[in-house]
Design a protein around this nucleic acid. Sequence first.
DNA 1: AATGAATGAGAATTCATTCAT
DNA 2: CATGAATGAATTCTCATTCAT
Lengths: 214, 214, 214, 214
Amino acid sequence: MTQTEQPAQRPSRNGKGTSSKYEQILQSAGQLFLQQGYERTSMSQIAQLAGVSKGSLYNHFENKADLFTAFFEECSRTRLNTLKSVSQAPQPDLRTALEQAAATIISLMIDPEAIGLYRIVVAEANEFPNLADTLWHYGVSRTLTGLSEWFAEKHAAGQLIIKDIDLAAEQFLTMCQTRIIHRSRLSLPVDTSQASIDGVASMVADSFLRMYAP
Amino acid sequence: MTQTEQPAQRPSRNGKGTSSKYEQILQSAGQLFLQQGYERTSMSQIAQLAGVSKGSLYNHFENKADLFTAFFEECSRTRLNTLKSVSQAPQPDLRTALEQAAATIISLMIDPEAIGLYRIVVAEANEFPNLADTLWHYGVSRTLTGLSEWFAEKHAAGQLIIKDIDLAAEQFLTMCQTRIIHRSRLSLPVDTSQASIDGVASMVADSFLRMYAP
Amino acid sequence: MTQTEQPAQRPSRNGKGTSSKYEQILQSAGQLFLQQGYERTSMSQIAQLAGVSKGSLYNHFENKADLFTAFFEECSRTRLNTLKSVSQAPQPDLRTALEQAAATIISLMIDPEAIGLYRIVVAEANEFPNLADTLWHYGVSRTLTGLSEWFAEKHAAGQLIIKDIDLAAEQFLTMCQTRIIHRSRLSLPVDTSQASIDGVASMVADSFLRMYAP
Amino acid sequence: MTQTEQPAQRPSRNGKGTSSKYEQILQSAGQLFLQQGYERTSMSQIAQLAGVSKGSLYNHFENKADLFTAFFEECSRTRLNTLKSVSQAPQPDLRTALEQAAATIISLMIDPEAIGLYRIVVAEANEFPNLADTLWHYGVSRTLTGLSEWFAEKHAAGQLIIKDIDLAAEQFLTMCQTRIIHRSRLSLPVDTSQASIDGVASMVADSFLRMYAP
DNA sequence: AATGAATGAGAATTCATTCAT
DNA sequence: CATGAATGAATTCTCATTCAT
C-alpha cells in the first residue's frame, strides 16, 4: 500500500539475446500503468499481459510498488531522453530556431506516453513522492539545462539580453504549455494538428523575443 | 441483476444551522478524496469520518462514483468561485494591477484544495471525463473570461495592443504557472513564500507588458 | 430469514371504497414474488411498486415472511378458485365431458400465475412448508374433490367402473400434466396452442375411458 | 470496470486418490445448493463447508453463477445417469416388467437429490434457463428414449398396440408421478414406503396395459 | 527462477428492519 | 398510520502476496 524504497536487484539481461522476462514484465506493467494508473492496475493483469505467472512477478520485484518505481525509472530514462535533443539543430535565424524548439517541445509533451507519465506523477505525488524527482530529473531538468545553455550562448553573442537565464528557460518551457499541453493533460478536446502546434510555437517565439531581444 | 430503485435525493439543507447528514458525508468524502484520490478512498473510510454507517452513504448517493462527482461539483462551485474576482480591484497603475492579478492567481492556485482538485482531475481524466469539464468551467473559464474582458478594456483604452485577446489571457494564465504552481502540483519542494510569489508575479507582469505594451 | 407464523391482523378494508393500502401492497408484492421469487424480491422493490414508503410495509405486515405468506394465501384463495368449477358444465357425451374437463384443467394450470405459484411453492418448500398445504388446499384438493364427486356419479350411473375413486381422480389430474404443463413449469419451449391442449386432453379422455369404461 | 482475466481452469482430477480441491468445492456447493437453493446459499457458506478460503472459490470458478452451473451439470451427469438403466432387466411377464419399471422410476425420482435438482430447476427457471435443458437432457430424455425403445419392441412383438410411441412413453412417465412424486416435490407428507410405491406402480402398469394391450 | 493454487483482508453494495418525527 | 433516513450485518467479488512443488 505504501511504497518500499529498496530498488530490486537488477539482474543483468541474460546473455541469450532474448529480452529477459524482467523486461517483459516491465514493459507490460508500463503499458497498463500508463493507461490505467497505479491503483487500477492489478498484478494479475500485468502477469497476464506479460504472459508470465503471478508468482514470477515476485521473483523479479519485491512488490507492486517496487515494480511500479522500476517501471517509472526505466520509462523516464528511456522515453524522456529525446527531450535532451531540443535545440540541438543549429538554425541561422534565431526566431526560427526558437519556434522550432517550441514546436518540438510541444510535440514531445503531448505524446500519449509523456501525458501518461505526467498524469501518473501528479496522481501518485503523495504516495510516491520521488516519482516527481525522477520525472523532473530525466524530463524537465535536462530540457531546462539545454535551453539555459543555448540562451547563455545567445546572450553572450548579444542576440538576447537576459538577466536571469534559468528563469527565462523556465518561462520558455512554461509558455510552451499554453492551451495544447494544458488541455491535453486534462483530456479536454484540443486541436493537436501540426498547424495548431506551429501556431502556439510561433506565439511563444514572438513573445520570447519581445521579452528578451535587444 | 435487479434494478436499483431509490434515486439519491438531494435534500435542501435543513435550516437549523446544523449541516445535514448529506453535507456531512460530502464534506468527509471531499477531505479524503482530495488527500488520497478516488481509488484509494474507500466508502468505509468516508462513513467512518462522517460518523455514519456505511449503509447511510447509499441512502444519499447511488454509488461511489456518484458521491465523487457530487463532491467534485460542489467543491468546484464553492472553492473555485474566488477565482472570478481576480482583477476586480481597480489600480491606477497597469503594471501594479497586472502584478497583483498574477499574485492573486498564483496564491489561489497553490491552495492545497486547488492543487488537490487539479490532481484528482488529472488522475481520473480517463475514468471521469467530465471532471475536467467541470474544473474548466468553474475554474479556468471564468478566470480567462475575466482577464479577457479586462484586457479588452485596456486595449480599447490604448494601454495594451493585443491582436488575439483570448490567447493573451491564456498566455497570462499560463505564465503564472511558472515554477511555483508547476512544482506544487508535483509536490516538489518549492518556495511558496509571499516574496517568491511576488517575484514570479513581477516577472509575469514585466513579460506581459513587453509583449503587449504599445 | 425463517418465517414467522403469526398472521398479521387483517384490517377490514376501509369503508371509503378505495382499495386500501394493505391490498395495494399485497398486489405489488404478489406481482414481484411471482416474477422473481421470494429471495430475489426486496422490500424496497415492493414499496416502490406499491407507491408507499418502506416503513409502511411494516405497519401492515410484521416482516417479509409475513407479507409473503399473506400474499400467498390471498392469491391461492383468489386465483385458484376457478379450478373448482371444472366439470360443472353438464355434457351429454361422457367422452366429450372428460375431454373438456381435461382441456380446462390444462388451460388453468399453464396460466402464468398458476405456474408462478407452483414455482414459488416448490422453490420455498423447505423455508415455507405450509405454502404447499395452502396450494394443495385451495388448488389441488378442490379439483380432486370435484372430479371424485363427478366420477362417483358416473360410477353410480354405470358409465364408469372405478374401484378407487380418489386414486382415479388423481390419475386424471396427473395425466393432464403430460408434456404441456410439465414443460411449462420448467420454462421449456412448448406448444401451448389450443390445438395442442386439445390433443393432450383428447389423449387423456381416451386413456381414462380405456381404463375405466365398462 | 476492469476486465476479469483468469478463465477458471478445470484441472483434471489428480490421480492421487484424494479428491482435488476443485471437486471438494463442487461437492460442498452442491450439498448447499440442493438443500437451500441458489439464492440462499452464500459463497462464504460454501467456502466454509469446503474448508477453503473464500478467495479460493474464485480461483476455480469465475463467479457464483459459474460455480452453480458447474455443479448442476456435474450433478445431472452423475446422479441422473441411473435413470438410463430403467427397464434393462428382462422380465418374462410384461405386466411385471412394467410394474417394476414404474417402481424403479418412482424410487429414483423421490430420491432427495432428484427432488432437490427438480426444485432448483423450477426455482431458477427464469434466472438460469438452461438448467431445464440440462435436466431434461440428462434426466428425462434418456428415460423417455429408453421407454420408447422398449415399447417399440413390444409393439413389434405384438404385445402392445401403440400408435404414438413417444407419447405413450411420456404418459407412462407422467403417470408414475401420481401422488408420491408429486407430493414429494412439494414436501407434503406422503407415504414413501416400498408398499406405497408398489401400489402406484401397480396402478400404472394396469392402466398402461388397459390403454395399450391388444 | 517459474508456477499457480491458496489465502485473508478488504472493497463496494444490498437489504430487512427500526425509529424519530 | 405514514414516512424515509439510519443501521449493521451479510453478500459477492478483488487483490497483493505467499509458498509448496
